[in-house]
Amino acid sequence: MQVTTTNSTAATGATPSQKAQLQKAAQQFEAVFLRQMIGAMRSASLAEGISDSSATQQFQDMADARTADAMAGKGAMGIAELLMKQFGARVSDTPVAPDATAAGKATGA
């Protein structure tokens, strides 16, 4: 998984490549999409439960978020993979230098 790659580059002090950043953003997008989908499915219930309260709702939301994050991390829906196929060819594998991007903005490039 790319998560371990990102963690290892952070430990060595190297900057992550644009592909690694794209992979992380794609997984986060998939997680947000899944959270919205799970929330919509949960709100479609027709009857109120015996233990429905604001606290229960809050814990269900947290559990749904964790479930969505886990599903996105495993690529359960394949959304992140599709995003990588679509946008992966447009980014390079070279590390992104923070100073280079700041210099490019300052010169108007």
Results as ranks from 00 to 15, higher is better:
residue 72 A to C: 05
residue 102 A to G: 13
residue 105 K to D: 08
residue 7 N to M: 05
residue 95 P to V: 10
residue 20 A to F: 02
residue 52 D to L: 01
residue 30 E to Y: 10
residue 55 A to G: 05
residue 61 D to W: 14
residue 26 A to E: 03
residue 107 T to Q: 05
residue 99 D to F: 05
residue 1 M to G: 02
residue 15 T to L: 08
residue 3 V to I: 08
residue 3 V to M: 06
residue 18 Q to W: 05
residue 45 S to I: 04
residue 84 M to G: 11
residue 5 T to N: 08
residue 100 A to M: 15
residue 10 A to T: 12
residue 89 A to M: 13
residue 54 S to A: 15
residue 101 T to G: 02
residue 80 A to H: 12
residue 103 A to H: 09
residue 77 M to Y: 13
residue 63 A to W: 09
residue 23 Q to G: 07
residue 2 Q to P: 09
residue 13 G to R: 00
residue 61 D to Q: 15
residue 85 K to I: 15
residue 31 A to L: 11
residue 20 A to W: 01
residue 57 Q to V: 12
residue 108 G to K: 02
residue 57 Q to P: 13
residue 50 I to K: 11
residue 26 A to T: 12
residue 7 N to T: 04
residue 15 T to E: 03
residue 103 A to Q: 10
residue 72 A to I: 06
residue 44 A to S: 06
residue 19 K to W: 01
residue 42 R to C: 11
residue 10 A to C: 13
residue 1 M to H: 07
residue 87 F to R: 00
residue 3 V to H: 07
residue 3 V to A: 02
residue 4 T to E: 11
residue 23 Q to I: 09
residue 1 M to A: 09
residue 86 Q to R: 03
residue 16 P to N: 06
residue 25 A to C: 08
residue 72 A to L: 07
residue 43 S to C: 05
residue 52 D to K: 12
residue 32 V to I: 13
residue 38 I to C: 00
residue 7 N to Y: 08
residue 79 I to Q: 02
residue 64 D to V: 14
residue 20 A to C: 13
residue 27 Q to K: 00
residue 98 P to G: 00
residue 78 G to H: 12
residue 57 Q to R: 14
residue 55 A to P: 11
residue 30 E to N: 09
residue 7 N to F: 02
residue 77 M to V: 03
residue 49 G to P: 03
residue 12 T to L: 07
residue 58 Q to C: 15
residue 6 T to N: 12
residue 54 S to Y: 11
residue 100 A to I: 03
residue 1 M to L: 02
residue 56 T to S: 13
residue 12 T to W: 06
residue 102 A to F: 15
residue 79 I to K: 06
residue 106 A to N: 04
residue 66 R to N: 05
residue 99 D to A: 05
residue 79 I to H: 02
residue 31 A to I: 09
residue 95 P to G: 04
residue 30 E to G: 03
residue 69 D to T: 03
residue 26 A to P: 07
residue 24 K to M: 13
residue 24 K to S: 12
residue 62 M to N: 11
residue 36 Q to C: 00
residue 50 I to C: 03
residue 92 S to D: 11
residue 44 A to L: 10
residue 27 Q to Y: 04
residue 78 G to N: 06
residue 4 T to V: 10
residue 24 K to F: 14
residue 63 A to Q: 10
residue 47 A to V: 14
residue 34 L to K: 03
residue 64 D to G: 07
residue 9 T to V: 05
residue 40 A to V: 04
residue 77 M to P: 01
residue 37 M to D: 06
residue 38 I to S: 02
residue 21 Q to E: 00
residue 103 A to K: 10
residue 18 Q to Y: 15
residue 74 K to I: 10
residue 91 V to R: 07
residue 101 T to M: 11
residue 21 Q to Y: 12
